[in-house]
Amino acid sequence: MTARIHAIVNPNAGGGYASNVWPQVKNLLSKYDLTYSITEKHGDAQAFAEKAIADGNEFIAVVGGDGTLNEVVQPCAGKEIIIIPVSAGTGSDFVRNFSINREGSIQDMIDRNISVNVDLGVVESTPGKRYFANIAEAGFGAEVMKRMNSHKKKRGGSSFTSTILMELYNFKKFSCSIKSEEYEETLDASEIIIANGLYFGGGIKAAPDASMNDGFLTVHIIRGAGRAKLLMNLRKLKNGSYIHDREVISFQTKKLQLDGNALVEIDGEDYGNLPSNFSIKPKALKVLGILEKDLEAS
């Protein structure tokens, strides 16, 4: 039988880049039983995903950025439906964890039903419970994303770097209580990364040791420091070498409690403020493709 696929398209993703990508994706998927929806506002992608599941689709293709994907993930967690993430945002960091971008490979993987079960992060706080597919942050990184989102700038590349520099001037460290089975302390922090995936900010390797199917969150805490020291660590973010700095605390955990006066973002979208509880939902999402880390290990 022909695979049933529903595509959810955010035409504004990537500063309009998704609008250019969509005709190519539509043509690529035209051999299947394809339907699609176009988002107009926040929340549409989640509603369309809920309907796609109810209609019995086997796949949901997400043509957008990480924010669009985050909406789609919410009703898909724990379901058999398979996500096809299409790199159409400026950052598109979730899809960087997978090998699905080679020309022609999407059709091959759909036909052969090649997919992987990946973990999802879970955050719970005043805004409510929400899944995140890639990375959550508290502190400096969340402030950067808030500035970017408020100005509707493109994510990734030079715009991400320039926003970091602008936010660096205003940012102040924050006191944070950190509790998990593996680590407990109250300290001054600049940035806390809670990672399921490896990348953020358009390919910056925020969590080089993270794995999306090991049942753990990878946590990196950059202690409170002056602007010069924070900038030095941020420069090391690109290749992930910052985690070896003595000011950085790293551990893996299944549950984490954070309390302090700091903003939180998940998958590049504003979430709210601490306090927040983080946990992992193992193998909760089916994604078309193969994890790059699994390919490297084979």
Rank of each mutant, 00 (worst) to 15 (best):
M1V: 08
I5G: 11
H6R: 15
P11C: 08
G14Y: 01
G15H: 11
G16I: 03
S19D: 02
W22A: 02
D33S: 14
I38N: 05
A45D: 07
Q46E: 14
I53H: 10
I53F: 12
A54R: 13
E58H: 10
V63G: 00
G67Q: 08
G67H: 07
G78I: 09
I81N: 06
I82P: 03
S87R: 15
G89Y: 10
T90R: 13
G91A: 15
G91E: 01
D93S: 06
V95N: 08
V95L: 06
V95S: 08
I106E: 06
M109N: 08
D119M: 04
V122P: 02
Y131C: 10
Y131I: 08
F132Q: 03
R147E: 11
S150G: 13
K152E: 08
R155T: 13
S158Q: 14
S162Y: 15
L165F: 13
F171G: 00
K179C: 05
S180R: 03
E181L: 12
E182I: 06
E185T: 04
G197I: 04
G197F: 02
P208G: 13
F216G: 03
F216N: 13
V219M: 00
A228E: 14
L231G: 14
L234R: 04
N239R: 14
N239Y: 11
S241V: 11
Y242M: 09
I243F: 02
H244N: 15
Q252C: 09
Q252K: 15
Q257S: 14
G260Y: 02
L263Q: 10
N273T: 13
P275G: 06
S276Y: 00
N277Q: 13
K283Y: 07
A284F: 14
L285I: 13
L285P: 05
K286T: 10
D294L: 04
E296C: 03
A297G: 01
S298D: 03
